[in-house]
């Protein structure tokens, strides 16, 4: 059924806050046009936006691969080559943040990124190695 899917490769620039959210916005627009249910669109948009912001704040940018399938929903793979997450369990706690003040001053870094990604995706796995980078795989099911 791989033939049915649409695959997107998106670059997330690491140093430009004003462009953070472009990738999720592109995907959101596409899903709306495809006629995915508003709820699926919203879940993908929020989960992916949070991930994208994390990639900008912590990961120095990276690549997002999105696969859209009419059967199984939307899969997202967010890959960065940043510092990695030393303690994933801690990072998953609401309010835990390692964002620097410069980022907090912009209204980010509230420690809700990963918890929100978990909340809005139906499946999520984090693969991270300190000094190598982080990959977050998320899936949003249909309906």
């Amino acid at each position: 059924m791989a033939n049915d899917t649409i695959k997107l490769e998106l670059e997330v620039p690491g140093d430009d806050f004003t462009r953070a959210g472009e990738a999720s916005s592109t995907v959101k627009g596409m899903l709306k046009k495809l006629g995915f249910s508003p709820n699926v669109v919203r879940k993908v948009a929020i989960a992916m936006y949070e991930g994208e912001i994390n990639m900008v704040i912590h990961g120095g940018g990276g690549q997002i691969t999105v696969e859209i399938s009419p059967e199984s929903g939307v899969s997202m793979s967010l890959v960065d080559h940043g510092p990695g997450i030393p303690n994933i369990e801690l990072a998953m706690q609401e309010g835990w943040s390692t964002a620097p003040d410069s980022v907090r001053n912009l209204g980010f870094g509230a420690g809700m990124g990963l918890p929100n990604m978990k909340k809005y995706s139906d499946e999520m796995e984090i693969l991270s190695e300190v000094g190598v980078g982080t990959t977050v795989n998320m899936k949003v099911h249909l309906a």
């Binding site: 049915d4 899917t5 649409i6 709306k32 046009k33 495809l34 006629g35 995915f36 859209i68 009419p70």
Partner: peptide, 10 residues
């Protein structure tokens, strides 16, 4: 929307 049928829309 491109089509009411998701597969056609894809």
């Amino acid at each position: 929307e491109l089509d009411a049928d998701l597969k056609v829309a894809m």
